[in-house]
Amino acid sequence: MNRRFHNGILLISACLIVTACGMEPWVKPYERAHLADPIMSGERNPVADAYMRHVYQAREGARGAEGGGGGGCGCN
């Protein structure tokens, strides 16, 4: 299951990237004021968010793709 899953993800990612190679930016830099607003940032609370990831990692079986740096947390 894992091998097919990995292949699928990589194939989709590669197709998206290759397709996007020929595209012009459809949102111009001067149209990105809303996206640049701090409330849209995924890294607005780096310390507080890292702590919540740790809370869940120590109590759940799942791990990975949480947005942190990865690596061992010593919480087994």
Binding site: F5, H34, D37, M40, G42, A62, R63, E66
Partner: peptide, 28 residues
């Protein structure tokens, strides 16, 4: 050995507020 995929989206609402949603699947 484990794999996880997360899809997340952020949306800026017209009155300067933000909505964030995310979904993760995991298998090991």
């Amino acid at each position: 050995t484990s794999s996880a995929v997360t899809v997340q989206a952020r949306y800026y609402l017209p009155y300067r507020a933000a909505l964030h949603g995310e979904f993760r699947v995991y298998g090991d």
